[in-house]
Write a protein that binds this DNA or RNA. Sequence first.
DNA 1: CTAGAACCTGACGTCGACGTGAGAATCAAG
DNA 2: CTTGATTCTCACGTCGACGTCAGGTTCTAG
Lengths: 146, 146
Amino acid sequence: MRIGDVAKLAGVSVRALRYYEEQGLLIADRGPGGHRQYPQSAVERVKFIQMLYAAGLSSSAILQVLPFLDTLVASPRMARQLEAERDRLKAQIDDLTKAHDRLEDLIRLAALYEDSPATCEPNETPPTTPVTRSRRRLSGARLTRH
Amino acid sequence: MRIGDVAKLAGVSVRALRYYEEQGLLIADRGPGGHRQYPQSAVERVKFIQMLYAAGLSSSAILQVLPFLDTLVASPRMARQLEAERDRLKAQIDDLTKAHDRLEDLIRLAALYEDSPATCEPNETPPTTPVTRSRRRLSGARLTRH
DNA sequence: CTAGAACCTGACGTCGACGTGAGAATCAAG
DNA sequence: CTTGATTCTCACGTCGACGTCAGGTTCTAG
């Protein structure tokens, strides 16, 4: 397959595929004119790479995980890397779930004050409810490393 | 409170707080010398902002959501924004969960081939299992918009 | 009063996963 | 043979949430 085909089938840009190769994530042999040649399996590999990118893994992290797909043999080093990324994902999922639930709370709270579906004018003076309802504690989740 | 106190209590950098103000997310009045003065509530506000950042919201998205915290009154526009972000979060959580489960599968698969806890030498020739086990289908989740 | 800590305003640097040309070569079809 | 589509290799641009340095001002403890 040529690079355009893989790009189309995997749903990524041609540039992305060249970038993956540059990062060592995707190898391609070359035709006589220097054009890249991919096996069919490249499509699934690219989709897997995309999934990991979408999950927030970096190129180098993916590079450490990918060899397992090829060899199906995990060195202890690789296994620990897999588990570390799994745990990181779990933590991030928990953070996102917290944020999701918090937004859900706000939405429900908003529905209480805006139950007139058509009257969108700002004349809705909400009944003087005690605003002193103690705010829930939030997660101090840090994603960025200072 | 001064900016350093808020930073310490909220667990962010001083630079971040100035950046939040620059983005309109956090207002501070000034002391006679030009130093920023924050109320106690700023700490929780910053933690909330951090949670939304960690959830992948952009500054402008947070800016559209935040006024609701202050007024507790949601315009229809604001309510739709809240719901949109909630849905985006839900979708992202699903993606992350897929990736997490996939990693979990790999880890379990790895455990089959590497059940000798101490012998870490690469002499473990796994039993010749049919590697032709068809790979599961992957999600073509796209986060980046080309 | 004075040293050092904390704060101020610019303004440039960073990092990662590509986007976006530029200019040239290769390939597939008529 | 020609033309248009695809591909090639540099190499610079982007965007967002800050980090970081520079040079100056303000606060606070002794």
